[in-house]
Amino acid sequence: MTHRQLQLVLLSGVVIALAILPRVITDVYMLNVLVLTLMYAALSQSWNILGGYCGQISLGHALYFGVGAYATSVFYASFGITPWLGALAGGVISMLLALGLGYPCFRLKGHYFSIATIVIAEIGLLLVHNWDAVGGALGIQWPIGPDSWVTLQFARDKAPYVYLALGLFVITWLVTYWIEDSRWGFWWRAVKDNPEAAESLGVEVFRSKMAAAALSAFFTALGGGFYAAFVSYIDPESVMTFRFSLLFALPAVLGGIGTLWGPLVGAAVLIPLTEITRSYMGGSGNGLDLIIYGALIMIISLAKPEGILSLFHRNAKPDARP
């Protein structure tokens, strides 16, 4: 069996195990944590396409998450359009938005790019805040209806959300898996490692970044659509703040940036930890979770810059650079 086939077998094992979990866990709080863990794994997998593989560290992906959440909510609450289609529409809008923003932003290098993404996402948050047609500061409440796979509303049994989040994770994983071994995957990593050398080898550097951004934004918006359906009420603060941008980047960074399994491993550690601190410390308004994230980033970058997964690699020698 090749290394790539082994990955697929591993995925099947993980999926089967995770699909059985909702049959075992009945506690609503625990199921909630499981849903969020899988959702952030999928979102971090999406972020990883641009940040991990292509090396363009975005700290503004909350923008695409918000666009997905809002598109899905507006289409459903105002026009009764199923969230399946709403999320797809949000994905397409985010993709176009990412291309429009990437055009100027990918001319910026390193930290300047990251700072620009933060600023743009904050502007997006302010715009939505003041945009009455989408509920302004009040947000959008999803109409209450019976449990249904069409409207993605499940009031009693939370298990369907586990399957939906798991499905989203599997899709983002498979897309990453497929691209990793294609021309785009090689081009992205070349752009990350050394853009000058990449260009001398015929890599379309700018186009590579644009493609990664578009794909990354698309899946992030699907995640936003899912989240809106899951919580069935959104406002600007609950889907578009900087905290989300951090939560998309961190699992990948923690688990192993630019790797296939890093986002899931990182999310499995980070999200339960976050949820537990939140329920013990109360609310998310006090910023304690942000302090924890900050501390985690520092610990990782000092102790294990290549993430948790590198503990299992025989060959990983981050200090071998001359």
Binding site: S182, R183, R189, A190, D193, N194, A197, V203
Partner: peptide, 24 residues
Amino acid sequence: PRSFDTMTVLENVMVGGFMRSSST
């Protein structure tokens, strides 16, 4: 030398190869 340092030697060369073909 400007190698792609997160890649293997073979992968480094493959980046150049994708200039002429898209079949991995």
